[in-house]
Design a binder for these strands. Structure first.
Lengths: 107, 107
DNA sequence: CCAATCAATAACTGTCGAGTTATATGATGT
DNA sequence: ACATCATATAACTCGACAGTTATTGATTGG
């Protein structure tokens, strides 16, 4: 029962973690240190959040010397967009069904 | 720091709760009993999930005799779409590579 | 009125996960 | 080789929350 968007929702549900992801979207490639500097939590906490984001495919890491740079992988958001479109589609199709029914009742 | 999409993400993060919302999108108006029948959890659990969905603005309730009908409020998903668009915007301003994602969002 | 039904609330329990500090791993410069 | 810096992992704590059963409140039919 664990769809791809399942992992996305739970990964992005945490405000601290989502803020990290947003920062990576906004400002691009960042080191763990740079992210920690504004995260409001300890460095290990940031590292754990990054690990979760990585498992969800939302970030990539790149090692450069003793630093690790992380960057956002925006295409990982696709299932989220798909899910939203699907919900909208259900809604629309029921609306169409209703219109269809009303049209039948009119004639 | 609690933005509107913050509540949406955490509300939709729970699989059981999201399944209830999906059901309401797919099949429209449902009673608590009908939702409980397929939720896989107890009736009180369903009621609590519905209360959370309602606080997030994702559902409306309508009392009819001793039953309560719930229905999805799809427009409440707007902040989610906005957030995704914003992330895509950040990304796009730095790269030009997300045709695939944009195609999904356009449909 | 009484019994039954539907939903919500109360009270409680257990689990999960986000945070901490402490430590390990690994790269760099002197 | 050594001291230092950057990140990851370990071990632990604590609170939030999803689930349970039991109960209450409200509505309907006999």
């Amino acid at each position: 029962m664990s769809q791809p968007h399942d992992i996305l929702f739970s990964t992005l549900a945490d405000p601290t973690r989502r803020a990290i992801f947003e920062r990576l979207c906004r400002d691009g490639d960042q080191t763990v240190g740079a992210l920690t500097a504004q995260a409001g939590v300890s460095q290990p906490a940031v590292s754990k959040h990054l690990a979760v984001l990585k498992r969800a495919g939302l970030v990539r890491d790149r090692h450069e010397g003793r630093q690790t740079h992380y960057s956002a992988q925006l295409n990982a958001l696709a299932p989220l967009v798909d899910w939203t479109n699907q919900m909208a589609g259900f809604w629309q199709s029921r609306f169409d069904d209703l219109e269809d029914l009303l049209r039948r009742m009119d004639q």
